[in-house]
């Protein structure tokens, strides 16, 4: 009887692990292909062992293609959006946590709704609004800066400018970040601030010396979520950016893929790896903070 049971347990384990291994292989395969193809001198569409190992694909990403610029653009826009989200969600989350205003609950659900709505559906009105802003801005900038106005608009423009993309990325990531920070501050007792008030801390000192250190895990979680999500965004840069100088990594990858005559799988794989690395680094940081943030508040 005992043997029947143990053999059944073994069979169950084999089935379970077998299934899991198949699923894992299925999930890992694209990454394995990518990693191998990126160092293959003759990469093909199918999975194969490299003919010869080379870093040539990577050197072409940065030397022949605009790799540095793409990477820089991506990093600049996404980091700017992340910093903005951290600041706004930190202040806003605190306000939403401490306020007793009647509109608090409706507001929180309303911003969640924004998050739930597919942003693709809102692209046309969004583009229209940004275009309106952009035209108005252009009308002011052009007479002021003359021939330099194109450079100015590439930085501060709402369409085909860093600022527009940063603002839209920020707005898109804010709802979740606000929720994270609101819930996080809910778990931070008011006593900390009141103790600081009695110790003679000014508002700025309370924020800098007490609230920010206490909120750091939450801010890190909100920031990393924002970074990872904005880093992976493809549609917004595609719609909002058209100049080659402003192109971000996903756009570079997309355009390299679209070239009709030469599909250079080695190059594509190398761009993809470069594109993945920051996200993986961000995630490895995020794990630590996420556990702390979502397992509940500040431990005294």
């Amino acid at each position: 009887m005992a043997e029947v049971r143990s053999s059944r347990t073994v069979l169950t384990s084999i089935t379970a692990y077998g299934t899991l291994i198949v699923i894992s292989i299925f999930c890992l395969l694209p990454f394995v292909w990518m990693a191998l193809a990126s160092v293959d001198s003759n990469a093909q569409l199918f999975l194969k062992w490299p003919d010869s190992w080379t870093l040539d694909n990577y050197s072409r990403v940065f030397n022949k293609e605009d790799g540095y610029r793409w990477f820089g653009n991506s990093l600049f826009t996404v980091l700017s959006a992340t910093i903005l989200v951290i600041i706004i969600s930190g202040l806003g989350g605190y306000a939403l946590s401490r306020s007793r205003a009647w509109w608090k609950q409706p507001f929180l659900y309303a911003i969640l709704l924004i998050r739930v709505l597919p942003s693709t559906a809102l692209l046309v009105p969004l583009y229209k609004i940004l275009l309106g802003f952009n035209n108005a801005e252009g009308a002011v900038v052009r007479p002021l800066f003359g021939s330099a106005s194109r450079q100015v608009m590439q930085i501060f423009g709402f369409i085909d400018g860093y600022l527009g993309l940063i603002i839209v990325l920020t707005a898109g990531q804010l709802p979740l970040a606000l929720w994270i920070m609101k819930v996080f501050f809910d778990g931070v007792p008011k006593d900390f601030e009141e103790a600081a008030i009695l110790d003679g801390a000014t508002l700025v000192q309370r924020i800098r010396r007490v609230l920010i250190p206490l909120a750091l895990p939450g801010l890190a979680a909100a920031g990393l979520f924002t970074f990872m999500s904005a880093w992976g965004d493809f549609l917004l840069p595609l719609i909002l950016l058209s100049s080659a100088e402003l192109s971000t990594l996903p756009l570079g990858l997309f355009r390299a893929f679209l070239r009709v005559n030469e599909i250079d799988y080695g190059l594509l794989a190398a761009i993809a790896v470069v594109y993945l690395i920051p996200a993986v680094i961000a995630f490895s940081f995020a794990r630590r903070f996420l556990v702390q943030t979502f397992s509940g508040g500040v431990k005294g």
Binding site: F192, E194, A195, L198, D199, L214, L216, G300
Partner: peptide
Amino acid sequence: DQRGIAMVFQSYALYPH
């Protein structure tokens, strides 16, 4: 802070950092 009063809180409110 200008009352010359100190307070000990129920939760102690010690800064964890």
